[in-house]
Measured scan of single mutants.
Amino acid sequence: MQNSHSGVNQLGGVFVNGRPLPDSTRQKIVELAHSGARPCDISRILQVSNGCVSKILGRYYETGSIRPRAIGGSKPRVATPEVVSKIAQYKRECPSIFAWEIRDRLLSEGVCTNDNIPSVSSINRVLRNLASEKQQMGADGMYDKLRMLNGQTGSWGTRPGWYPGTSVPGQPTQDGCQQQEGGGENTNSISSNGEDSDEAQMRLQLKRKLQRNRTSFTQEQIEALEKEFERTHYPDVFARERLAAKIDLPEARIQVWFSNRRAKWRREEKLRNQRRQASNTPSHIPISSSFSTSVYQPIPQPTTPVSSFTSGSMLGRTDTALTNTYSALPPMPSFTMANNLPMQPPVPSQTSSYSCMLPTSPSVNGRSYDTYTPPHMQTHMNSQPMGTSGTTSTGLISPGVSVPVQVPGSEPDMSQYWPRLQ
């Protein structure tokens, strides 16, 4: 039975679970980093996980050691009161100082060594604690504590007292930064006198190289990059290397530039699409467009005044059976039934097929058609009795279509119309 579990990581490298990497692998990681390889490249070359490479390099940059820390136990506290007071002093002298600059000053002034120097995250935590204590304490208590930490007896009751030896409130920041720059020169002199001055200088240079600022491109470089971006948004590694040799930039910087440029292009394309949609959409909808001609068919113009009344309900007709019959029939052209047409008796099958359309009241044959006459024609229609054979009435077949029909004066039988409509 094995005491430890061995495995293979996602890159194909072998590791022992819970145990640190061998010293030979750690040394190779540092050597590759000094030669300029990126952590992701080191991870692929040595088949070590990216997190492990970053952790080893980060500890090497901070402490200069590649040895693993002790497994188990607690780390001794490195942010001692003396170190905290120095950090507060540096922050007062130059409020814009960075944590890694404070760390360098602690090393250069001999406050800490490589073994007990606090990390950048520890210094940031100390600065946050100082800021929170400043908010919790009152103004007087804060000034007393700062005077105690600074070891001075001057008056701290006013704002300019934060910067000793100065009279203009805006000047101390520059003086403090100048003092810090002077301390940086002392850093070089002190570290050069040490035993491991060369190694420390190499480590600091490598650290500065990794902690780079934003790349500033010249106009020629920007023009070359934009020209390549117009050709393709995704250049391959050969195109990037050719462009890197042409404009004297690292291939990694060119790759990052193209990634950022593609993101910018997507944002601009989104804005262009929004403007295009806004320009195509009308600002207001016309009133006429809300009524579609496919839904509402136009009603033909009436030929006679009587045809303006298109349904039985508008003429005072309360018989719903006839109203439904007229509205359900398709529109037909106007025609006239003459008196000489043969009077065919209704076929029983045809009569039964339209039995649902006729009223059940037996008085329908005896009703006159003056009910369908509009009010303004009552006088004219009353002067001509319906009993004469020459009287013409208008029957409504569908809305908007008038059918003048000659009705025999002897017997106005409704059943004569249905064979004609089939």
Rank of each mutant, 00 (worst) to 15 (best):
Q2H: 12
Q2A: 11
Q2W: 10
N3D: 09
S4I: 11
S4H: 10
H5F: 08
H5A: 13
S6R: 14
S6I: 15
G7H: 14
V8P: 04
N9P: 04
N9L: 01
N9R: 03
Q10M: 08
L11R: 06
L11S: 03
L11K: 05
G12V: 00
G12A: 01
G12R: 02
G13F: 00
G13A: 01
V14C: 08
V14G: 06
V14N: 10
F15C: 02
F15R: 05
F15W: 06
V16L: 14
V16M: 15
V16E: 06
G18F: 02
P20I: 01
P20H: 01
L21S: 04
L21F: 02
P22T: 04
D23V: 13
D23C: 10
D23W: 08
D23Q: 13
S24E: 11
S24I: 12
S24Y: 10
S24K: 09
T25L: 06
R26E: 01
R26N: 02
Q27K: 12
Q27T: 08
K28H: 07
K28G: 06
K28Q: 10
I29P: 00
I29R: 01
E31I: 06
L32Q: 00
L32A: 06
H34G: 11
S35C: 13
G36Q: 05
G36S: 05
G36Y: 01
R38A: 06
P39E: 04
C40K: 06
C40F: 03
C40P: 04
D41R: 06
I42Y: 03
I42V: 06
R44H: 06
R44K: 09
L46R: 03
Q47M: 09
Q47K: 15
V48I: 11
V48P: 04
S49H: 00
S49A: 00
S49M: 01
N50A: 15
G51E: 04
V53D: 00
S54D: 02
S54P: 00
K55L: 00
K55V: 07
I56D: 02
G58Y: 12
G58F: 03
R59C: 00
Y60P: 03
Y60G: 03
Y61I: 13
Y61N: 15
Y61T: 05
Y61A: 10
E62C: 06
T63N: 04
G64E: 03
G64N: 01
S65M: 08
S65I: 06
S65Y: 05
I66N: 03
I66R: 06
I66C: 08
R67E: 10
R67D: 07
R67Y: 07
P68G: 01
P68K: 02
R69I: 03
R69T: 04
A70C: 08
I71Y: 10
I71K: 15
I71F: 07
G72T: 06
G73M: 03
P76F: 03
R77P: 00
R77A: 00
V78S: 01
V78G: 00
T80D: 01
P81A: 08
E82W: 12
E82T: 14
V83D: 02
V83P: 02
V84Q: 07
V84E: 03
V84Y: 05
S85P: 03
S85D: 08
K86A: 15
I87A: 07
I87K: 02
A88G: 14
Q89S: 10
Y90G: 03
Y90T: 12
K91I: 03
R92L: 09
R92C: 13
E93T: 11
E93A: 08
E93L: 10
E93C: 09
E93H: 07
C94I: 08
C94G: 12
C94W: 09
P95I: 10
P95R: 15
P95N: 12
S96A: 14
I97F: 13
F98A: 08
F98L: 06
F98K: 12
W100C: 07
W100A: 07
E101P: 05
E101K: 13
E101Q: 15
E101D: 06
R103Q: 09
D104I: 09
D104R: 12
D104C: 10
R105F: 10
R105Y: 08
L107I: 08
L107K: 15
E109N: 13
V111M: 10
V111S: 09
C112M: 02
C112V: 13
C112D: 09
C112I: 06
T113S: 13
T113D: 11
N114M: 12
D115G: 14
D115P: 14
N116F: 09
N116M: 11
N116S: 08
N116H: 13
I117F: 13
I117K: 15
I117M: 08
P118W: 01
V120S: 03
S122N: 02
I123E: 00
I123T: 05
I123V: 15
R125W: 01
V126H: 04
V126P: 05
L127P: 01
L127I: 13
R128G: 02
A131Q: 12
A131F: 11
A131C: 09
S132G: 10
S132K: 15
S132L: 10
E133M: 11
E133V: 09
E133G: 10
K134Y: 10
K134N: 08
K134V: 11
Q135M: 12
Q135K: 13
Q135I: 11
Q136E: 12
Q136F: 12
G138I: 14
A139I: 15
D140K: 12
G141Y: 10
G141V: 11
G141W: 10
M142D: 11
M142E: 14
Y143E: 14
Y143H: 12
D144R: 11
D144E: 13
K145T: 12
R147Y: 10
M148L: 11
L149P: 15
L149G: 14
L149T: 15
L149S: 15
